[in-house]
């Protein structure tokens, strides 16, 4: 019944006290929100906790949802804020690497014909990528995660983060370049 309804219709039903409608919203978005949380936090358990907290918080603040933004953007924003809170509480942000202070890797290193998929096994490779993603600054990390793990369009990312599309594109470009460098560093260190 609720599967055919739009997100907005589901929200209206949820506001009328229909728990099944909110359950459908959870079912639709939990995977994406989990991916975002996993990418941001880098830990499965924490990601699951934050995903749950996100939906709980969304349910509690349904009344305040004015419908100006899309439900997906709203949920993503809640999830991002929850992730930041979690990271602050654990002081995980200390692990972040400041791009400005980061010594730029030599062009020679980037030109090394290193092909990560050929060097490491899938799991190890995934672990390396995870660490590399985690080491990205927050504003670059969230763009990469939304694009790569959630298949969001530039427009959707821009709406979620309240940024111009051009900024999203340039951030993604920068993030991919940084990621590539970090991966090569890690692979060469292995």
């Amino acid at each position: 019944m609720t599967a055919n309804l739009t997100d907005e219709q589901l929200i209206r039903k949820s506001l009328d006290g229909d728990n099944e409608a909110f359950g459908e919203i959870v079912k639709r978005w939990e995977r994406k929100i989990f991916a975002l949380c996993y990418g941001m936090l880098g830990c499965k358990e924490e990601a699951l906790d934050v995903t749950q907290e996100t939906f709980m918080l969304a349910y509690r603040s349904l009344q305040s949802f004015r419908g100006e933004a899309k439900i997906s953007s709203w949920l993503h924003r809640i999830a991002l804020n929850q992730c930041l809170t979690k990271m602050r509480s654990k002081k995980n942000s200390a692990e972040e690497i400041n791009i400005e202070s980061e010594p730029s890797l030599s062009t020679a290193a980037s030109k090394k014909a290193v092909s990560p998929p050929e060097l490491v096994e899938t799991k190890e490779r995934a672990e390396l990528v995870r660490k590399a993603v985690r080491s990205l600054p927050l504003e670059l990390r969230q763009v990469v995660i939304m694009k790569e793990f959630e298949d969001m369009t530039f427009q959707q990312i821009a709406e979620t983060l309240n940024l111009p599309v051009s900024t999203v594109k340039s951030r993604l470009y920068l993030a991919l370049k940084q990621l590539k460098m970090k991966l090569e560093e890690k692979i060469s260190a292995v």
Binding site: T122, K123, R125, L128, R130, V133, L179, L183
Partner: peptide, 8 residues
């Protein structure tokens, strides 16, 4: 490489 993490 990112697809490996995505699968995970």
């Amino acid at each position: 490489s990112l697809s490996a993490l995505r699968e995970q």
